[in-house]
Nucleic acid binder design. Structure first.
Lengths: 239, 239
DNA sequence: ATAATACAAGAGCACTGCTCTCGTTTGTTG
DNA sequence: CAACAAACGAGAGCAGTGCTCTTGTATTAT
């Protein structure tokens, strides 16, 4: 009977969530590699071996944290986009998503490091994580595609650029066509600039959060604004 | 007598280097957080406590590794730049440094993660590391400044961009002026685009090495070429 | 009611960073 | 040259880690 769960099932879900929450809290005080399963167990009032009833290993716990964090970030980005009432204001949507991404990252630096920092050694993110992981870029792609369908000018490659752009971003083109983007909208130069912009956004956040911009950038808020604006401009999005 | 070192001093330097080498080798099989001081000690035929005669803590060892890796990368980048015979070929120099950076990163992914991945928790990189850490960006800045002094067109901000660019990159402007760049060459828009390009390069490498481009980019070599070329173009560097 | 299963607890293993103590070696000074 | 101080390597030990195995109990299904 799937309608009424047994007491044990409910308890299991509750405790699983409780462990996850405790682990996420612990993550804020240490890195993924330092996440102590025993400490998490203590926080929820269990002995360490009992946690293994819920997560077969520390890596499985990390995977669950990874998915939760990706979803949290994706939700924040999507909510920010959805909050833009003028759906034709592509630059506004772009800025909203970028700003929300940065806000979330600054509010959850340890989750950010888990997602976009060094991968935990000896741990390969399983397939379950790719869905949640793509939510931000999917939304960014949607904004860009919509803008160009509405007449935004396509970026042009530098005259002397190497040939064969479409070959380098074949995966991305295939992806957007898979979600129903018409073939003529899948312009390689747009795809390339989109991936570049996406990379720059997260590169900027990594540099900011990991301290590589100390001494170069004086006002992180204003700097990010400038970057986001130029990325949009490079993509043909204007106010 | 500083000329002839005592046997103990020489031994100390040798053993210190030996420990460092062993640690670096170990780093290739685990992450910074998993670097086992005991394992390193075993590799050099010591007992763990003896290592503490040379490095007061595991973090100090990490710092030494950090500096060594930064210097290694910086040296590779500088050598690639120096190898460009036509010093007026600014795009060639730019490409050489970027390519060398990527080559080094792909050859030393664990060192790269140490430098540009998540910072090791509870560990703040000391001041000693900032010098070696800036070698790549210093060389990139040199190329860009030289190019613009030779007449490369300065990038222009989008018409509707937020004002106050110079305020966001004040640190960078101050820095280039400190190394003898004349005031008129310290154009804020150039500085901003330089930091953006720098961020994009390492953002691209992080995304590539950490697996975030899987599915989007089909040919990493060719993609990086395209990115580097566009970054140069955005900065006014042309063939 | 009985049998199967899930569970929490504890002991234990091999490992970690780090500290302390112990003799020994090396370098400096009188 | 002798005496002292500093540096050194080795070992034991502490508190912590991930994880496994066993044991007794509570819950579920038959």
């Amino acid at each position: 009977m799937p309608a009424s769960k047994t007491a044990r099932q409910r308890a299991r879900e509750d405790i699983t969530a409780e462990i996850l929450a405790a682990a996420r809290a612990r993550l804020a005080e240490a890195g993924p590699g330092e996440l102590s399963l025993r400490a998490v167990a203590r926080d929820v009032g269990m002995v360490s071996s009992a946690v293994y009833r819920y997560f077969p290993s520390r890596n499985e716990l990390l995977t669950a944290l990874l998915i939760a964090a990706y979803d949290d970030l994706g939700e924040a980005a999507e909510a920010a986009d959805d909050a833009v009432t003028d759906r034709a204001d592509h630059l506004g949507r772009w800025t909203a998503v970028c700003d929300a991404t940065r806000e979330w990252s600054r509010a959850h630096p340890h989750d950010y490091a888990l997602l976009y920092g060094s991968p935990v050694p000896g741990y390969a993110a399983p397939q379950d994580t790719v869905g949640p992981a793509t939510r931000v870029i999917v939304r960014l792609v949607d904004i860009i595609v919509t803008a160009h369908q509405s007449g935004a000018p396509s970026p042009v490659a530098p005259a002397t650029a190497p040939t064969g752009v479409e070959r380098t971003v074949a995966g991305a083109i295939e992806f957007v066509q898979g979600v129903g983007i018409p073939e003529e909208a899948a312009v390689p130069e747009i795809a390339l600039r989109t991936i570049m912009a996406w990379t720059t956004i997260f590169g900027t956040l990594s540099f900011e959060l990991f301290g590589h911009l100390v001494g170069s950038v004086s006002d992180y808020d204003a700097y990010f604004d400038q970057v986001v604006f130029r990325l949009a401009a490079d993509l043909g999005l204007t106010a």
